[in-house]
Amino acid sequence: MSEAVNLDVLDELKELLDDGFPLLVERFVADGQERVDKILLALEEQNPQLLYTEAHGLKGSSRNIGAGSLADLCGQLEAMGHANDLTAAETIVAALKTEFSAACQVIIDH
């Protein structure tokens, strides 16, 4: 499961932030879940702009915390939203949900 997050990046953040690291984890999990929920809503409503916006935001925070696979999935959704084409989004959103859960578990346990 550790492949969901680059542990070297987490270790660097933990060292850099020291006592602030738990707050980073808490914010990533809470904000990320809110973005995932909005991505699901965007898919349900077939709203490419909302999909683009939320995927873009989650992509940035995922990259910052070392969750590269999650960020890559977000990038795919971001591109779909930008292109106004959500035809393949359902499969990627399902993978994103799984990857987000895995990344959160690694980050919380680390």
Rank of each mutant, 00 (worst) to 15 (best):
A55I: 02
G66K: 13
Q46Y: 04
F21V: 02
A55S: 14
F100P: 04
Q105N: 14
G20L: 07
Q105A: 06
Q105T: 15
E90D: 07
H56N: 11
T87G: 01
Q46M: 13
V106P: 09
I108K: 14
S2C: 06
T53F: 08
K59S: 04
A89Q: 01
E26C: 11
S2F: 11
L13R: 04
T98F: 05
V106I: 14
L24W: 12
E3M: 03
L70G: 03
Q49P: 00
D72W: 03
I65S: 03
Q49A: 13
A67R: 05
L10G: 02
E34R: 09
K38M: 11
A102K: 14
L96K: 01
D18Q: 13
G68A: 15
D72K: 07
I39D: 01
G66Q: 06
V9G: 05
S62D: 13
K14F: 13
F21G: 06
I92S: 08
A30R: 15
V36F: 03
V5P: 09
I65K: 07
L23W: 04
Q105E: 11
P48E: 00
E54A: 08
L17V: 02
V36R: 12
E34T: 15
D37G: 10
A102D: 15
L77H: 03
V93W: 08
Q76F: 02
T53N: 10
Q49H: 02
L16K: 07
G60S: 13
E44N: 10
D19M: 00
G68R: 14
N6F: 09
L43R: 06
D8K: 15
H110K: 08
L13A: 04
L17H: 05
L40S: 12
P48M: 01
T91C: 04
R27S: 11
G81S: 04
V29A: 05
I39Q: 07
A4Y: 06
T91K: 13
L77A: 09
I92M: 10
S61F: 05
S101Y: 01
A83L: 10
L86D: 04
L86Y: 01
C74P: 06
A95Y: 00
I107G: 06
L43K: 02
E26S: 12
L96E: 08
P48G: 00
L16E: 12
L40R: 15
R63S: 10
E34S: 13
F100A: 01
A102V: 06
M80G: 02
A67V: 07
M80N: 00
S2M: 09
G81A: 01
I107M: 08
T87L: 00
E78F: 12
M1R: 05
V106C: 14
E99R: 00
Q49W: 02
